[in-house]
Structure formats: C-alpha cells, structure tokens
Amino acid sequence: MKSSLFSLLLLAVVAGAGCRSTQMNTVDPAQPANQREMISDKRVLKDQSLNKAVNIVGLNVGTGPEGFLKVQVEVENRTRSLKSFTYTVEWFDENGILIELPTAHSRPRSLEGGEIAAITATAPTPRAKDFRIKFLEPVGR
C-alpha cells in the first residue's frame, strides 16, 4: 500500500511539474478609444472545465461598407496554466441555412494562464447574417 501511495504521489509531483503555472499580466488604457458594439449572446455550456479555460467575456460585431459581418469574441483563460482548445465558426444566411465552404476548419488556439485574447472571424459572404462559434478541448490525435 505504501509503495502504491508513493507512486501516486510521485506521479502527481511529475504531472504538476509539467503543468506549472504560467499566468499572464496585461495592461490596457483605462479609457479605451474604441466604441465596441457588444451584443447579448446565448451560451450552451456542457464542459465546465473548458468554460473555465476559455471563458467568454464578451461578443461584439461590426459590418463593413460591403456588408461583410465581422465578429470578435473576447475570451479569458481563468485557470493558472496554459490551455489549448479548438474552435469552429459556422455562418448562416438570413434563412438560417449553413453556408458551407472548403476553408471551414477547426482552429487550434492556446491561452496562457489568465490570458485575455480576442478571437475574430470574418463572414465569407455578405449573405452571412448569423454565426455560431463552437469551442472544444483538444481531442489528441
């Protein structure tokens, strides 16, 4: 029993050393010059650990002169260590039909502990009126 406990303890120490804390410090202007149009969002959270690693702080959108939608999601890693994840952006037309493109892919991303980052996506066509962003933990292949 003693040796099992020792092995477990050793494993925990080794694993802990591999995931050492790397927290990030940041600085922003106190009064930002930009006027962000934040929109309300609907979230479906099924993975709470992922929600902590990739916490959605806010969502803002903009449209250019030619009608292409641009989306920015501000995410924060609320853990103390580096977290990797993938995200996929889906675009829908005014009828809610998915717009399919050969450039669609799962985008890999990582955030240091405490890091806040902006994830941006540009609509592929002016027909895109809605979007959905899906986050997933790495599946390890």
């Binding site: 250019g64 030619e66 292409f68 985008r107 996506a121």
Partner: peptide
C-alpha cells in the same frame, strides 16, 4: 490538410477585411 484550410481561411479573411469589405 487542416493547415491548408487554416491558411486559406486566414488569407481569405484578410482579403475581405482589407480589400473587399472596405470597397
């Protein structure tokens, strides 16, 4: 395959952002 898709997507978004969307 996903690297090509990632690069193509980023390049297309850049073209839209910097050239097409501003007219």
């Amino acid at each position: 395959l996903q690297d090509f898709a990632q690069a193509a997507d980023a390049m297309t978004a850049s073209l839209i952002d910097n050239l097409i969307n501003p007219g």
